[in-house]
Computed example of a mutant assay.
Amino acid sequence: MTRETRTLPALAPGGVDTPFVIAGYDEVVTHDTVWDEHSHPFHELLWNERGASSAVVGARVWTVTPALGLWMPAGTLHSGSAVAGTWFRASFFGFRTTSSISPTPVAVEITPLLRLLLERLGDPALSAASRAATEVLVLDVLAPSPRELLVHVPTSALLRPIADAVREDPGDPRTLTDWASALRVSPRTITRAFNTETGTSFARWVAAVRAQHAVALLTRGWDVEAVAEQVGYRSASAFGVAFRRTTGLTPGTFRTH
Rank of each mutant, 00 (worst) to 15 (best):
R3P: 00
R6D: 00
R6A: 02
T7S: 13
A12C: 01
A12T: 09
G14K: 05
G14P: 02
V16W: 13
D17I: 06
T18S: 11
V21G: 14
I22H: 00
G24Y: 10
Y25S: 13
D26Q: 13
T30D: 14
H31L: 03
V34A: 12
D36V: 08
F42E: 06
H43T: 10
L45N: 02
L46C: 00
N48V: 05
S54K: 15
A55D: 01
V56M: 14
R60G: 04
R60F: 12
V61M: 13
V64L: 06
L70F: 10
L70A: 13
M72D: 00
A74M: 01
G75S: 10
L77W: 06
A82I: 03
F93E: 02
G94R: 14
F95P: 03
R96W: 03
T98D: 00
S99V: 11
P105Q: 12
P105F: 06
V106Q: 06
V108G: 07
E109C: 10
I110F: 05
T111A: 11
T111V: 07
L114T: 02
L114A: 00
R115W: 11
E119D: 09
G122V: 02
L126I: 15
L126C: 03
A133L: 15
E135L: 03
E135K: 02
L137W: 04
V138H: 07
L139H: 04
V141E: 09
P144L: 03
P146S: 08
E148Q: 13
L149N: 11
L149H: 08
P161K: 09
A165F: 09
V166A: 09
R167P: 00
E168I: 05
P170C: 11
D178N: 13
W179D: 02
S181Y: 10
S181Q: 12
R188S: 14
T189I: 03
T196F: 09
E197M: 11
S201W: 08
F202E: 00
F202G: 05
A203M: 09
R204T: 03
V209E: 07
Q212D: 08
Q212L: 15
Q212M: 14
H213A: 15
W222D: 08
W222N: 12
D223V: 11
D223K: 11
V227F: 08
E229N: 05
V231N: 12
V231Q: 05
G232N: 01
Y233N: 06
R234H: 11
R234M: 01
S235N: 00
S235H: 10
A236M: 05
A236Q: 07
S237A: 12
F239N: 03
G240Y: 00
V241Y: 12
A242L: 05
R245C: 03
T246F: 13
G248P: 11
G252E: 15
T253F: 10
R255D: 01
H257Y: 10
